[in-house]
Design a protein around this nucleic acid. Structure first.
Length: 480
RNA sequence: CGGGAAGUAGCGCAGCUUGGUUAGCGCGCAGCGUUCGGGACGCUGAGGUCGCGGGUUCGAAUCCCGCCUUCCCGACCA
């Protein structure tokens, strides 16, 4: 018996952030880089990102966007052209002042996001209404100098996708913003199984330079919110700053309406914290590098039959599109492997030895329910397939129920501050900056969004009593 | 940047108060053997500029000074 305290993880209930840090390391998702705040994404973690990337990229392409790549370095002056944009980003910029052995005449910023360079290029490329809409996307790294880094959640450099589009009219641009939001919803609900709330950001929480910002707010298992993706309507702000104009059918010059939208490696952090438990990760099947792992249990030297069967299972499952891995490491005990793969979040595990084979069955273990069932050998791959689908439904339902169970309505200031300690609180709010700041100072919670699907209500701000401009209750929570 | 803690093997730590052989322990790692149905065991072995620089001393992981870094808590944030 190895020592449990050295092998296991700090329970979530004891210290959620310790749990998070340990599981990121132990599941071999990522490691810290040598420079403060940087992250090395390890193969197992990167595979999750690739799977996510593939799901999202195909949706981006299916809706008529094209991938492109823009430079990492941006002239500092570009950032300054849009007033709110600079103000929002300047505190977290990394600026290159020296290159080629001498001081640069104009400093270069390492992109924190690419609205500005892309805007500059769009201005060159767009002449006529016939060039619109222009729908671009790029997969890239960006740098934001964060004070308190945490792997996947806040690192100085992270990976993401940023969509940038230009349209002739506000209506077209707003439809685009909704399209982007919709494929994020699909990713969050169908792929990552997060069951987030969709809504609009309050003015104070908007992207720097946007007219409207929309987001998906997922709930982590400690009750905190995490923004899973965002989509912005930028109006003509960037078009004016970068002179992105087109000649209309009538011959007059008009500013384009632009949008931008993004999802980052932070989503992996969301998956970890929304699904994981005290045994480790629980991965949604569509994001699991291995959807099932095969652990053959060898006894004595006569392992060839067992090995052959394991190979056969792997071939059958791969043929059905199920990502499978055989763990035949001879130097580890089965029990060790069970725990290790549970820590890594593999949804299903097939284990079998002499005892099973003699009965013509294998044992199938479910990471979510911890249940084991015996499955006939010739039914294994199809059972795995149906179990994976069931696993997805169960995991999604669990996330959804958890969110609903931890969402409360506050009707008074006292109730609000009591409930805001954990989970989502829905309440009437006046939307003023002073009042949002007051909430933040006293509880460290922020308005997460004005949910789309909330019923219309008319009430006074639960904090200060002023009239609510939203016409519905909005969501507050502590957030990552 | 403000408040707190810590730097000794890959990881977790002991040793420091009271300076003194070759700096230990657990896990992990390597080799061999026995094992294998929920974190196996035995034997053998590899692995260290004790964060960096200076000082005190016959002698510093240990005492003194300076610096650096990391982690936790607050202000920022996808």
């Amino acid at each position: 018996m190895a020592r449990a305290d050295e092998l296991s993880i700090t329970p979530q209930s004891q210290d959620f952030s310790a749990w998070y840090n340990e599981i990121v390391q132990k599941a071999e998702l990522a490691d810290r880089g040598p420079v403060r705040g940087t992250m090395v994404i390890r193969p197992y973690g990167y595979r999750i990102w690739e799977l996510l990337q593939h799901e999202l990229d195909s949706r981006i392409k299916a809706t008529g966007h094209e991938n492109a790549y823009f430079p990492l370095f941006i002239p500092e002056e570009y950032l300054k052209r849009e007033a709110e944009h600079v103000e929002g980003f300047s505190p977290e910029l990394a600026v290159v002042t020296h290159a080629g052995g001498k001081q640069l005449e104009e400093p270069l910023v390492v992109r924190p996001t690419s609205e500005t360079v892309i805007g500059e290029m769009m201005a060159n490329w767009i002449e006529s209404h016939r060039d619109l809409p222009l729908k671009l996307n790029q997969w890239a790294n960006v740098v934001r100098w964060e004070m308190r880094p945490r792997l996947f959640l806040r690192t100085t450099e992270f990976l993401w996708q940023e969509g940038h589009t230009a349209h002739a009219t506000e209506e077209d641009a707003k439809e685009e913003v909704a399209t982007a939001l919709n494929f994020y919803r699909e990713i969050a609900d169908d792929v990552a199984l997060l069951s987030p709330v969709l809504g609009e950001k309050t003015p104070g929480e908007r992207f720097a330079g946007a007219l409207n910002t929309y987001s998906l707010e997922a709930m982590m298992r400690d009750g905190k919110a995490l923004q899973a993706a965002t989509s912005h309507y930028l109006g003509t702000n960037f078009a004016q700053a970068f002179n992105i104009t087109y000649q209309s059918g009538e011959g007059d010059l008009q500013y384009c309406h632009t949008t931008s939208w993004g999802m980052s490696t932070r989503l992996i952090g969301a998956v970890i914290m929304a699904h994981g438990d005290d045994k480790g990760l629980i991965l949604p099947p569509k994001l699991a590098p291995y959807q099932t792992v095969i652990v053959p249990i060898a006894k004595g030297p006569e392992t060839s039959e067992i090995k052959k069967l394991a190979d056969q299972f792997a071939v059958d499952m791969e043929r059905m599109g199920i990502r499978t891995h055989i763990d035949d490491r001879a130097y580890l005990s089965p029990g060790f492997k069970f725990n290790a793969w549970e820590q890594k979040g593999v949804p299903l595990r097939c284990e079998f030895g002499e005892r099973d084979i003699s009965k013509g069955v294998v044992t199938l273990h479910n990471r979510l329910t911890s249940e084991k069932q015996l499955v006939a050998i010739d039914k294994l791959s199809e059972t795995v397939q149906t179990e994976l689908r069931q696993f997805e439904r169960d995991l999604f339902e669990r996330a959804k129920e958890f969110r609903l169970a931890n969402t409360r309505y506050a009707s008074s200031k006292e109730e609000f501050f009591e409930q805001i300690q954990s989970g989502f609180v829905v309440a009437e709010h006046c939307g003023t900056k002073e009042c949002e700041d007051l909430v933040k100072e006293t509880s460290s919670a922020t308005p997460r969004c004005i949910p789309f699907d909330a019923k219309p209500t008319n009430g006074a701000c639960v904090i200060c009593g002023k009239v609510s401009p939203y016409g519905k209750r909005i969501i507050f929570a502590k957030a990552y």
